[in-house]
Design a protein around this nucleic acid. Structure first.
Lengths: 341, 341
DNA sequence: CTGAAAGCGCTTACAG
DNA sequence: CTGAAAGCGCTTACAG
């Protein structure tokens, strides 16, 4: 047998002097077929190393059993934990997963959506590229295949959205700082109004209001790119103020770690002088000194949940397009950066 | 037009009162077709939101343009950078990528190989699960589709293997410590003889020999699971010795970071008393205090290279099975954990 | 219990 | 310049 050759039903049928139909049925354990025949067929199939061509099967059944996934950046840790959940759940349910990256480019994202529908995926899981504005492209895809959004979502797209309890999580994080006795709590958030940043900011505001703490515009800082470097830069600005904050809530771990790096540099005691809380529970949050208090986002569960909702829609396609939001609970992981002395 | 409906060539043909053949050729800009006809066809195709069913096309051409990827753990940072490279290069070359995780289980790995060949992927990229012993399964797959291994490879599998210059990289890392004036250099490696651990250990030995430094068995430590926790544990053992080492070379960043955490706890000066060098240039290596000297592994390049070699084999299937090793160069990133005072 | 035939959507050699 | 027909590998309703 030469290399790269795949045995087909036809070959088996020829060798056994049976019809293709019978061979197919025998392999699929169809009740009609004689036990003896089944045995013979299966034996030869094993010998000839036969395995069904799933592509042909999918083609016939008009169902690919493939889920397409589009994420902004695959090497972002939180994203990779979601992907892990997606892969696990998809495998359990008998689906394969095609992954692609939009690199936060809307153009690329549209291209990916097109390839995926052309390819005939049964459904699409997507976390939106930053600044996704031309929702039309996504809506057009929605006519072809069900979509479930996760993490970076948009209410403008009428479909199921799997997110964490952003607002509540931020509320809890800030309340934790207040209970620690902190009163001048700065926030480092995004300039652009992403779903996530907006919700976390709302939680911050609500916590302050709820506890009767005055909102100080001066210590509400924003940045385009919510990274370690900008977390550090904005913290330096906070430190240059006449009246420094006594806590910093950064809406990402990266920015919070940047903040800690800045505070460490000036030998400011954490959490006594300034406490810090982040968001994500990334691997780095346990590496930084002092270890970072942060919101744990269960990526695995988000991924699994998104897959479940998507497969539900694949199995029972409904024509009523609705925006449904599914919230996954998070927990605050308290570490040294905000531990009561 | 109802939801979830895909226009087909047949429908276009019917609407235009043309044959399916003509419509197909018009859309593919076949020179035989009348310009006017092409225009009409294309116009209607746009109106009816037609896009070709790639599944049908693949089915006919017996080529899926899909690459299967199997990795032990998708959320390992280094792996995700390789995946990034794979996705980028695959897209450029017009391939789609199916990703799955073996979770370091050989059984699961075999299953994935089977599904992928059944599915008819054009080729497979794989990083082996730990302790892959039953090479037979992989060899059987090799009869169906070309395989290129990367990172976790095995010489027992006759195929192209894309790796980094493990031995040389370790040699350079240890030589760097020697040039710093260190003489009692401990190594933290894996118990099990993985390709990577073996090569790095060989580089360590060669560097010591090359510089006429005696090899001390006592400070050559091994662990099953080369993680932060075990890096810390083994470092504690090193610290309990009568004569402590003056440097630690850990064959992963995780273990090196564990080492630094242990040293920090005992307020041991890094690098003056004990210098530390890791391997990977993970995100965490820039977070830990002091920042970690480590070997930068260009994941992106590894991924791209693996895709290129695989597509070469897909395009020109050769029957001569050979083991070819492709080495990607690394660089040592010197940071505070080994910086001359 | 087994077989002949249709069909999934597409491309292309062959005919006119 | 256009069309009828075969075929990629499989499943299944229909017939016997």
């Amino acid at each position: 047998m030469s290399k790269r050759h795949n045995t087909t039903l036809k070959e088996l049928a020829l060798a056994l002097n049976l019809s293709i139909s019978t061979v197919s049925r025998a392999l699929n354990d169809h009740p009609d077929i004689n036990e003896k025949t089944k045995e013979n067929v299966k034996k030869l199939a094993r010998q000839m190393n036969y395995s069904p061509n799933l592509f042909a099967r999918s083609f016939r059944s008009q169902k690919t059993n493939i889920i397409g996934v589009i994420v902004p950046n695959i090497s972002h840790y939180f994203t990779s934990t979601i992907l892990k959940g997606i892969l696990e759940e998809a495998e359990i349910q008998g689906y394969r997963v095609i992954i692609s990256e939009s690199n936060n480019s809307e153009t690329k994202q549209t291209e990916m959506l097109n390839t995926m529908t052309q390819f005939g995926v049964d459904g699409i899981l997507m976390s939106l590229a930053r600044k996704t504005t031309k929702v039309d492209d996504v809506l057009r895809t929605l006519n072809r295949a069900p979509i479930v959004l996760f993490d970076k979502v948009s209410q403008k797209i009428p479909c199921t959205q799997v997110v964490i309890n952003e607002e509540e999580a931020a509320f809890n994080a800030v309340e934790h700082l207040i209970e620690l006795g902190k009163e001048r709590i700065a926030i480092i958030k995004e300039t652009e109004n992403s779903y996530n940043s907006e919700k976390r900011y709302a939680g911050y505001l609500r916590a302050l209001e709820h506890h009767g703490i005055r909102i100080r515009e001066k210590i509400i800082l924003s940045t385009e790119d919510i990274s370690l470097i900008h977390g550090r830069r904005l913290t330096n600005i906070l430190l240059s103020m006449k009246k420094r904050p006594d806590a910093i809530f950064a809406i990402t771990d990266d920015a919070a770690i940047g903040a800690i790096k800045a505070l460490n540099k000036f030998k400011i005691k954490i959490p006594e002088e300034i406490a810090v809380v982040g968001f994500s529970n990334s691997a780095s949050s346990k590496i930084i000194q002092p270890e970072l208090t942060t919101v744990d986002q269960p990526g695995d569960k988000i991924g699994r949940t998104a897959v479940k909702y998507l497969i539900d829609e694949i199995d029972s396609p409904s024509n009523n397009i609705i925006t449904k939001t599914v919230e996954i609970k998070t927990t605050l992981v308290v570490r040294d950066s905000s531990l009561r002395a």
